[in-house]
Simulated scan of single mutants.
Amino acid sequence: MIRKPKILEIQSLRGLAFLAVVMQHAVAHYAAVPEMQLGDGVMMAILLVLSKFAVPVFVFITGLVLFYNDKDDFHYGVFIKKRLSDILLPYLIWSVIYYGINHGWYDLWQFVQLAFTGKASYHLWYVVMIMQFYLLFPLWRYAVRWITRKLIGWRGVAVLLLAAAAYIVLMGQVYVIGQVLQEHPIPVLTELFNKYADRNALYYYLYFMMGAAAGLHVEVWNRFVLRYRIIYWPVFIALYGYFISVSVGAFHTSQGLKYNFYHVFLLRPLMAVFLISSILVVYHFAILCARQPTSRMNRLFTWIGMYSYGAYLAHAVTLRLGYKVDHFFLLALPVTARMLIVMGIAAAASVLLTAILSRLPYGKWMVGIHVRKRALAKDTE
C-alpha cells in the first residue's frame, strides 16, 4: 500500500497551537495578580488576542488529518479504538491526576461527572469537545464525501462559503439557543447548549470543515493560502487591532482598574471572522516554516508539535511548577516578564515530560504517542 506523503506544515501548526494554549492560560493567571499595571494589561491583551487561534487551529488540524488519511475501506471499530487508546485513555489518566490535585479522593461519582464533562481541570474541556468529532466521524465522512462527489469545483467552494456564513450567524445565536432550551428543557441537550456550550462540537464545526477541505485538496489549499494572503492578512490585522482596543477599553470600570477579556470569547460572530483569518495566517506561517525544514524555528515548532497532545494534557501541572518558581525568584520583575518566563518554563517542561514518557514502555497511556529511537532519529535528520 502506497502511503501518502506527510504534510510538512502539520507538526509546526500543532507546535504553534500548543504554545498559544499555554500563553492563554498563563495570561489568565497573571491578569488576576495584584501587581498588575496598565502596561502589563495592554501587553497581555496583545498576547492573548494573538493566541486565540489555538483551539480553532487544533480543530482544523483534526479535520485535515482525518480526511487526508481517509480510505475507502473505513472501519469505524478500528478508527474509534485508536482514538480511545491515543486520545481518551491519556485524558482519563490525567483527569485522575487533576482530580486528585484539585479535589482530593473522596467522591468517585464526582470524579465520573467531572471526567465526563471535562471539568477535572480547566483545560480538559477541549478533549470532550474534540471527541465528539471522532465519535460522529462516520456522519461527517458521509456528508463531506457526498458534497465532494456532487459539488465539485466552484460549487464545493460555494458550500464552504455558505457554511462559513451560517457559522457566523450561528455565533450570534448562541445565547438565544441556550435560552430556548432552558425554557424548553431536553435531557442532555439543554446542558450541552448552556452550561457546557463552550465544549459543544457544533459550535466549532466550521474549523473542522475547513480542515476537511484542506485535507482533501492539500495542494489546492496551499495555493489558496499563498495566493489570497492579500485578502485575509488585512482582515486579520484589522480585527487584531480591534479586539486589542476593546479589551483594553474594558479595563476601565466604575469600580477601578480591573482586567478582564470577555470581549475575546470564542463564540461570537466577529470573533469567528477573526479566527477564520487567524487559521489562514497561521497556516501561511507554517508553510513558510516548512519551506526551510532545516531552520531552527521550523525544527523547534516541529519538535513541539510532535509531543503537543501529551504536553497539552500536562501543561496545567507544569504551569503550577512555573508559579512556584515565580513566587520564589521572579516577584521583582514586571508582571509581563514573569508571565512570559513562566510560560516558557511550563511549555518546555510539559514537552520534555511528554518526550520522556513517550519513550517508556507504557508511556503512551499517558501521552498518546510512543516514539521509537529509529523514528526519532529519522525525524531529526
Score class of each variant (00 low, 15 high):
residue 53 F to P: 03
residue 225 V to Y: 05
residue 238 A to F: 11
residue 144 V to R: 04
residue 30 Y to Q: 03
residue 205 Y to K: 03
residue 308 S to I: 06
residue 36 M to P: 03
residue 347 A to Q: 09
residue 252 H to D: 12
residue 128 V to G: 06
residue 352 L to H: 09
residue 97 I to A: 13
residue 39 G to P: 05
residue 211 G to L: 10
residue 239 L to M: 06
residue 137 F to W: 10
residue 178 G to Y: 12
residue 96 V to H: 02
residue 240 Y to C: 05
residue 146 W to H: 11
residue 75 H to M: 01
residue 70 D to W: 00
residue 270 L to T: 04
residue 26 A to F: 06
residue 116 F to N: 00
residue 226 L to T: 11
residue 174 V to K: 11
residue 9 E to K: 08
residue 330 L to D: 03
residue 120 A to M: 04
residue 226 L to Y: 10
residue 180 V to S: 11
residue 166 A to F: 12
residue 204 Y to K: 02
residue 340 L to K: 01
residue 18 F to Y: 08
residue 373 K to T: 14
residue 27 V to F: 09
residue 213 A to I: 01
residue 260 N to K: 09
residue 299 R to Q: 15
residue 372 R to L: 15
residue 37 Q to P: 03
residue 291 R to W: 12
residue 140 W to C: 10
residue 287 I to N: 07
residue 259 Y to F: 15
residue 183 E to A: 13
residue 270 L to N: 02
residue 311 A to G: 14
residue 76 Y to H: 02
residue 317 V to K: 09
residue 314 A to L: 13
residue 378 K to A: 15
residue 282 V to P: 10
residue 104 G to A: 06
residue 134 Y to M: 07
residue 211 G to K: 10
residue 359 R to S: 13
residue 12 S to D: 09
residue 33 V to N: 09
residue 101 I to K: 03
residue 206 L to G: 02
residue 180 V to I: 14
residue 80 I to L: 12
residue 224 F to V: 00
residue 236 F to Y: 15
residue 61 I to C: 08
residue 156 G to Q: 03
residue 275 L to W: 02
residue 114 L to F: 10
residue 235 V to T: 12
residue 59 V to E: 12
residue 278 S to N: 02
residue 214 A to Y: 09
residue 132 Q to I: 04
residue 5 P to K: 13
residue 112 V to M: 13
residue 20 A to R: 07
residue 268 R to I: 01
residue 374 R to T: 15
residue 189 L to D: 02
residue 263 H to P: 01
residue 191 E to D: 15
residue 182 Q to K: 15
residue 164 A to P: 06
residue 46 I to E: 07
residue 218 V to T: 15
residue 187 P to D: 10
residue 61 I to A: 03
residue 194 N to F: 07
residue 72 D to R: 05
residue 210 M to Y: 06
residue 111 F to C: 03
residue 146 W to F: 07
residue 315 H to E: 07
residue 170 L to Y: 05
residue 57 V to T: 08
residue 87 I to N: 07
residue 371 V to A: 09
residue 66 L to P: 07
residue 249 G to P: 00
residue 231 I to T: 08
residue 136 L to Y: 06
residue 366 M to W: 15
residue 118 G to W: 08
residue 80 I to V: 11
residue 277 S to Q: 07
residue 53 F to C: 06
residue 218 V to R: 14
residue 175 Y to W: 11
residue 21 V to K: 02
residue 241 G to N: 09
residue 258 K to G: 06
residue 165 A to P: 03
residue 142 Y to H: 08
residue 177 I to L: 13
residue 14 R to W: 11
residue 259 Y to N: 00
residue 120 A to C: 12
residue 134 Y to E: 01
residue 95 S to W: 09
residue 360 L to K: 12
residue 340 L to P: 04
residue 62 T to Q: 08
residue 178 G to R: 13
residue 112 V to D: 00
residue 75 H to Q: 05
residue 29 H to E: 06
residue 180 V to N: 11
residue 325 V to Q: 08
residue 157 V to P: 00
residue 210 M to K: 09
residue 205 Y to N: 07
residue 3 R to V: 02
residue 291 R to M: 13
residue 238 A to S: 07
residue 177 I to Y: 14
residue 253 T to M: 12
residue 221 W to G: 00
residue 141 R to S: 01
residue 10 I to N: 04
residue 253 T to C: 11
residue 290 A to I: 14
residue 14 R to C: 11
residue 235 V to N: 01
residue 232 Y to R: 08
residue 222 N to P: 01
residue 11 Q to A: 10
